[in-house]
Design a protein around this nucleic acid. Sequence first.
DNA 1: GCTATTAATGATAACCATTATCATTATCAA
DNA 2: TTGATAATGATAATGGTTATCATTAATAGC
Lengths: 148, 148
Amino acid sequence: MYGRHQWRRRFRANACRWTAPRESILDLLGRTRGHLSAKDIYLSLQPTFPGLGLATVYRTLELLHRLGIVQKVTSSDGQGRYQLRSVDQQDHHHHLICSRCGLIVDYRDFVREELELVKKTEDALAKKYNFVIQDHSIEFLGLCEKCR
Amino acid sequence: MYGRHQWRRRFRANACRWTAPRESILDLLGRTRGHLSAKDIYLSLQPTFPGLGLATVYRTLELLHRLGIVQKVTSSDGQGRYQLRSVDQQDHHHHLICSRCGLIVDYRDFVREELELVKKTEDALAKKYNFVIQDHSIEFLGLCEKCR
DNA sequence: GCTATTAATGATAACCATTATCATTATCAA
DNA sequence: TTGATAATGATAATGGTTATCATTAATAGC
């Protein structure tokens, strides 16, 4: 995983400053498995960083998303959730989402097959519809064990 | 496509009443290609149905979604968009979404291959994670011709 | 190490899609 | 026809996200 030095360099390269809020948010994302909402992050950092503002969390997440550092999932309730984009391809995954309680499960089954197809589709769509493809999302919606 | 008699029967079977707002919304969805937001629908019906309330549009869309009549896409700007679920399987498609302006393109390329993989994945995930799978979503995000 | 420039921050108001409330109306089974 | 009640419309409330703006802090140039 990246350390603060690498992050700092990456920020500099994009004319962005390396600040305490950004470091603490990246740090939290780095040591958290799941998908965090802006409020999750805001509340989690409250004890160690009481001065942090919610607006800064949003701004930082948007920046990280723009830089391709963070992956954004808009769940069906319209709330954005964020996760560090893993450096190694081994960790690429897709989502299984409970439409009742919003639980998000990362699954890694069939990812190889999925990515093959994704690559093929991506190329074809980019050409046919004249899009610049930035990302893809494969999700299954259903009811989890508790909600079924 | 369904006519009002079929819809009416389907509503009755679910203890739902057949009303003017519901008929007009279904009618509009039936003769519109793209994905409509609640406000789109509200504004489109304003001339022919001035009394229609926005809340009713939301309630109707939620009902149609619950009944499986309508497909919902939550775009990355957090706005819900709705489309009549097509009766014939031939029309099954996935989405190409512009992350800047929200444009949604339905594509039908590689859908056969995608659905094969989807079926396989669905079965495995349902078993492994004890989910009841209701739906899936495959989306590509990028910048459209105008926004690139 | 200073200092000027200006990006970033925090507090808060504004925004906007969606949901809840509630009195009124309309559907439909009996 | 009528009674029970589902559905509606108007509007207030909610909640996530964005805009505003004065203040603070990071960085490049000296």
